[in-house]
Amino acid sequence: MTGGSTLPKRALGRELRRLRERRGTSQAAAARAIEVSPQTIGRMEDGHASRPTTLQVNGLCDLYQASDEERRFLLDLLRELRVAKQTGGTWWRAFADEIPADFNHFLALEAAASRITSWQVTLLPGLLQTPDYRRALTWSAHPNRSSADIERRIDLATQRQDRLSDNTFHMEVLLSEAVLRHGIGGYGVMADQLLHLLELSELPNISIRVVPFMSRSQLGLIVRSFAYLQFPVPSNTRISEPPVVYVEGYTGSLYLERDPEIAQYAQAIHGIRRVSLDEDESRKLVSGLVKEYQG
Rank of each mutant, 00 (worst) to 15 (best):
D278W: 06
R283C: 09
D259S: 15
S235T: 13
Y246H: 14
G252F: 07
L229K: 00
Y228T: 06
D280L: 09
V223E: 06
E279M: 07
V244S: 02
D259Q: 12
F226A: 00
I272Q: 00
Y255W: 04
P242W: 04
L229D: 01
Y250P: 02
P243F: 08
Y246A: 04
Y250I: 14
A227S: 14
A227W: 03
G271N: 10
S225K: 06
R274E: 15
V286W: 01
F231N: 04
S253M: 06
E281S: 11
P260T: 11
V245K: 02
A268K: 06
E248T: 13
K284P: 01
I272F: 00
A266D: 14
A227D: 15
R274M: 11
P243R: 05
A266Q: 11
Y228I: 07
L254C: 14
L256K: 03
E257L: 07
E261W: 05
S235H: 13
N236Q: 12
I222C: 03
Q230H: 02
R238C: 13
G252E: 12
R273N: 13
Y246W: 08
L221V: 03
R238F: 11
L221P: 00
L219Y: 06
P242G: 10
L254H: 04
R273S: 15
V286A: 00
V223T: 15
G220F: 11
E279H: 09
G271Y: 09
S276T: 12
V275G: 05
Q264T: 14
L229W: 01
Q264V: 05
D278H: 04
A268C: 14
L221E: 10
G249P: 07
A266V: 02
Y255K: 02
V286C: 01
E248H: 08
R283G: 00
V244L: 06
D259R: 11
P234T: 05
P260H: 11
S240F: 02
A266R: 13
Q264C: 06
V244K: 02
V247D: 01
V245Q: 02
I269K: 02
L219E: 08
V223W: 02
V247P: 01
Q264Y: 09
E248C: 07
E248M: 07
G252H: 11
P243E: 12
L219C: 05
A266S: 15
E248R: 14
Q267Y: 10
I239F: 08
Y250D: 10
L229E: 05
E281D: 13
E281K: 10
V233R: 12
R238S: 14
Q267K: 11
P260S: 10
R274W: 11
P260K: 05
Y228V: 05
S240Y: 04
P260Q: 10
D280A: 14
T251V: 13
E248G: 09
D259G: 03
R238P: 00
V244Y: 00
I272H: 01
D259F: 03
R224I: 11
E261F: 07
P260R: 10
V233C: 13
V244R: 02
E241N: 08
G220L: 04
R224L: 10
A263T: 14
I269C: 08
R274A: 13
R258Y: 05
Y265C: 01
E257V: 07
G271W: 01
Y228A: 05
A227G: 07
H270W: 05
R274Y: 15
V247H: 01
I269Q: 07
V245Y: 03
L254I: 12
L256A: 03
T251F: 11
T237R: 07
L256F: 04
G252T: 12
